[in-house]
Amino acid sequence: MAAWLSAGLVLGLAARGPEAAPTDRLFRSVSPSADTIEVTMTDHAYEPSTLTLPAGEPVTLQFTNEGTVEHYFVVGSLVASDKEGFEQNLFEGVSIEKNKQPGGHADEEEGEHDEAEEGDHHENEFELPPGGRGSMTFTLPAAKAGTYTIACFETTGGRKHYEMGMEGTLRVTAPDDE
């Protein structure tokens, strides 16, 4: 009897077509409705260097590090006195989903996924090795509307990358600004 029921269930699902397959949901993008913005990190710039993101809507920043050294994407205001980050963190209190495909690093696991990556010092930071790719998906609240600075705090030759030009602007627009 159980065999007949199993066979009937399989035939019933097959008759409904591929849209009925329950595994389809497993392969969808994390946020299919999110705006996706591609950001390229080079030595020593972001392309584009100016980003405008809507508050209250999911956004995915898709990163590629085309540089020859590790780079960071950090957003905030007021560079801290130790020049290791910002005093005010744009992503403080915001849930972020980070996904990384590190590229040429054999010791790192392909497709890392975590909300608080071990290599990132805090939630405001997204770092990638040379050749690495990854994304951050988040929704900023309207209270975060304003203009912020993007910077890379990695050091090469005793100088921070943002001092060599790896900086930009991120503007968060409130729903009524659009």
Rank of each mutant, 00 (worst) to 15 (best):
F63N: 05
S6Q: 13
M41N: 04
D24P: 00
E38D: 13
G17Y: 09
G119M: 09
A21K: 05
E92L: 05
A45R: 15
L53C: 05
A7K: 14
G158K: 05
C152D: 14
D82K: 10
E109P: 07
P130L: 05
T169Q: 07
G76S: 02
F86E: 01
S77I: 09
P129N: 08
G67A: 15
E125L: 03
S77A: 11
E118Y: 10
T137N: 06
A15M: 08
D82A: 07
L9T: 11
T149L: 08
Y148I: 02
H161R: 01
Q88K: 11
K160V: 05
E108H: 06
A45V: 00
P129A: 07
V39R: 05
E118A: 14
G56F: 04
G134C: 08
A34R: 11
L51H: 01
A14G: 07
A14N: 02
G103D: 12
H105N: 09
Y162E: 03
V74M: 06
G12P: 00
T169P: 00
S81D: 15
Y162A: 00
V10I: 15
G76T: 04
R171H: 08
P102G: 03
R28K: 15
D43H: 01
T173A: 11
N99S: 07
E115M: 11
F73K: 03
S77T: 15
G85Y: 03
A3N: 13
S77H: 11
A143S: 15
C152P: 01
G168P: 02
L5M: 09
P102M: 08
P102R: 08
T173M: 03
A45Q: 11
G76F: 01
P54H: 07
D107E: 13
Q88L: 09
G134E: 08
M41Y: 07
G157P: 01
M1T: 10
V10K: 10
E92D: 13
V30L: 15
G132S: 08
L11A: 13
